[in-house]
């Protein structure tokens, strides 16, 4: 009898179990993705002083862009500031592990690479680090996605993914976009 309070509570309890079950299914899929194919938000608590990063250390001007180290690891360093990326174009190899490292000397910026899972905030005081791998070549857009002042709309960069055969580091291990 539907108007019996007990049966009422029973139908609600059944619904509640089904809903918690549905939520658990999604949770399971998310946790699996984070553990097995390593699809996580970028979390890397690493500090850098925003006021001195351009003077000394890893993020001085001639260290920016893509560099291959002695062990063959590819790292791309980018400084985001009002209202541009430095450099505005970076080259990365296809099908290889790439590590991006972003810093900001002024205010909060953020970025994504269109069509990929690369997305991070760039918070002054921190190094934002993203590991990824690109599976097809091409020029990809990398806009700033956090309001950083009145010039925010102009803040756009490009990521150029090239096949490994075309990825040729110079004697210092650096690779840069050709001038055009």
């Amino acid at each position: 009898m539907a108007i019996d309070p007990l049966s009422n509570a029973r139908s609600e309890r059944r619904w509640a179990f089904a809903m918690v079950g549905a939520a658990m299914m999604m949770l399971f899929a998310i946790v699996w993705a984070s553990l097995s194919p390593h699809m996580n938000p970028p979390s890397n608590i690493e500090n850098v002083d925003p006021n001195t990063l351009h003077i000394a250390g890893e993020f001085t001007e001639d260290n920016l862009g893509t560099q291959v180290d002695a062990k063959g690891r590819v790292t791309t360093r980018i400084v985001t500031s009002q209202f541009s990326f430095a450099p505005e174009c970076v080259v990365v190899p296809q099908d290889m592990q790439v590590t991006f490292r972003f810093v900001s000397p002024d205010v909060i910026h953020g970025l994504l690479v269109v069509g990929t899972n690369i997305n991070t905030m760039v918070v002054p005081g921190y190094v934002s680090q993203v590991h990824t791998m690109f599976d097809k070549p091409g020029d990809m857009l990398m806009p700033c996605h956090e309001f950083c002042g009145l010039g925010h709309s102009q803040m756009v960069a490009h990521v150029r993914v090239v096949p490994i055969a075309d990825f040729k580091p110079d004697e210092n291990g650096r690779v840069a976009c050709a001038e055009h």
Partner: peptide, 20 residues
């Protein structure tokens, strides 16, 4: 709703590749 979520998960999220 679950189907729509699963479509995005399987056909957009997973193909976009590892990140973290």
């Amino acid at each position: 709703l679950l189907v729509a979520w699963a479509i995005i998960y399987l056909f957009v999220f997973l193909p976009r590749g590892p990140v973290g």
